[in-house]
Design a protein around this nucleic acid. Structure first.
Lengths: 211, 211
DNA sequence: TTAACTTCCGATCGGTCGTTCGCTATTGTC
DNA sequence: GACAATAGCGAACGACCGATCGGAAGTTAA
C-alpha cells in the first residue's frame, strides 16, 4: 500500500487531480508575492507562468480569467493577514486587552512582512489601485475587507468603553478611524522612507490612543 | 504691432515654438488628471495622445521618455498641492497657527480634489506604486516630496513647542508621523469608502493632536 | 479496457505598450 | 530669401498583454 503510493508519485505526475490542487496553490502563492510588489493590476499571466515554469494557458486554465486570479490572490493575502494579526489575539480577553494584542501583532506583521513580501502591505496597494475605479468585483472585495477589519476594531473598542477600560464618551468609530490611518502611515514610513523608528512611533501613538 | 500679433495667431499655428509650450502644458495637465486615477504607472502615451487629439510620437517628442513625462506630472501635481495647501497658509504666523491653517487646507484639499481629480491624492497613489520598487528617479522624487512636507510640518511643530503652544516634551517628529498617517487614512476613507464623516473625524483627531 | 474528464501545452489571436524613424510643415534666424 | 531648427505626423518595430483553441498526456470511474 505505502509502497504503491510511493511508486505512484515518483515521477511528478503533472496531470493528476491532486497535483492540480498543488499547482493552483503555487500559482496563488506566487501571485500574492508578486502582487505585494507590483499590485494586483501588476499581476501578469505571462510573468507568473514564466516564474512557475509553465505555460500561460495552463496557468490561466486554473482561473479562467485574470480577475478571478486577482480575487484568489486577495483572498489568500487576507488569510495570511488574519492568521498573522487576528488569530494570535483571538484568545485574548475581548475589549482593550484583545485590542492591544491585535495592534501589536499588526505592527510586527508590517515589520516582518518587509522580509516576506518586499512590496509592503498588499491591501494598501490594492486600495490605492482600485479606489478611483468604477465598481467591480475586486474593488468590492477590497472595500469589504477593510470594512470587516474596521468593524472588528470597533467591536473591541465598544466593549472597552462599556467596561470602562477607555474614557466614557470615547467614540469607537473615531478611534478606529485614527487607528487605520496610523497603520497606513506606518506602512508608508517603512516601505517608502525605510524609517526604522516608525514601529516605535506607532506604539507611542497607540498608548496615546488606547492608554 | 498688436494687429500683427493677432493675425499671426489666427489659424492655430501647430508648429510654432510658443504653441509648443502650450501643447506641453496641455500634456502635463492631462497627465496629472489621468495619473490621479490610474497612477503614474498607469499613464500611457497612446491614451494621452488620443485624449489630446495628437499622435503618440508627437506627444512623446516633448519628453523623449515616459519616465520624464512621469516626473513632469509629479512635479506639476506637487505645484498644485503646494498652491492649494501650503501657499494659503504661508502668510499665517509660524508655529501652531500656521500649522492649523495648513491642516485645515489639507482636509478641504482632499475633499475638493475628489471633484477635480476623481482618483484621489496622486501622491498616495505614487507612494504605493513605487515604494516596493528598486530605486529610480521617480521613486526618489516621490520620497523627496514626502520628506519635504514632513520637514515643513516638523518646523512649525518645533516652533509651536518652543513657543509653549504645545506641551513641553512634545516630540515634533512623533506628531508629524501621526499627522501624515491621519491624512492617508482620510484619503482612503474618502476614496475607497466614500465616508463623508471622514473630514470631521480628521478635524477631531487634529484637535486631540494639536489642541 | 474503455470512455469521460482533467491538466497542461503550443500556437495563435487582436490589442496595446513604449519607442524609433523618416518625413512635412512651419518657425525663427541670418 | 536662404537655411537651420523645431513641432508634429504616420508608419513601423519588437515586446508583451489577456484570452482562446485544439490536442496530447494522464487520471479516474465504469
Amino acid at each position: 500500500m505505502a509502497d504503491g503510493a510511493a511508486t505512484m508519485s515518483r515521477m511528478s505526475p503533472r496531470h493528476s487531480f491532486a497535483e492540480a490542487r498543488r499547482t493552483r496553490e503555487r500559482i496563488v502563492q506566487r501571485s500574492v508575492a508578486v502582487a505585494s510588489v507590483e499590485g494586483l493590476e501588476g499581476l501578469t499571466i505571462g510573468r507568473l507562468a514564466t516564474d512557475l515554469g509553465m505555460s500561460k494557458s495552463g496557468l490561466l486554465g486554473h482561473f479562467g480569467t485574470k480577475e478571478v486570479l486577482q480575487l484568489a490572490a486577495l483572498e489568500r493575502a487576507s488569510d495570511i493577514f488574519s492568521a498573522a494579526v487576528w488569530a494570535p489575539a483571538a484568545a485574548a480577553r475581548p475589549g482593550l486587552t484583545r485590542l492591544r494584542a491585535v495592534c501589536e501583532e499588526w505592527i510586527t506583521y508590517l515589520e516582518r512582512e518587509r522580509e516576506a513580501f518586499p512590496g509592503g502591505c498588499l491591501f494598501t496597494t490594492a486600495v490605492v489601485e482600485f479606489d478611483g475605479r468604477e465598481d467591480g468585483p475586486v474593488r468590492d472585495a477590497v472595500a469589504r475587507l477593510f470594512r470587516t477589519w474596521r468593524r472588528r476594531l470597533i467591536v473591541d473598542l465598544r466593549i472597552a468603553v462599556r467596561a470602562g477600560e477607555l474614557p466614557a464618551g470615547t467614540d469607537p468609530r473615531q478611534v478606529a478611524f485614527e487607528l487605520i490611518g496610523l497603520y497606513m502611515g506606518l506602512n508608508q514610513a517603512i516601505q517608502l522612507l525605510h524609517d526604522r523608528q516608525a514601529p516605535d512611533r506607532t506604539r507611542r501613538a497607540l498608548t496615546r490612543l488606547l492608554g
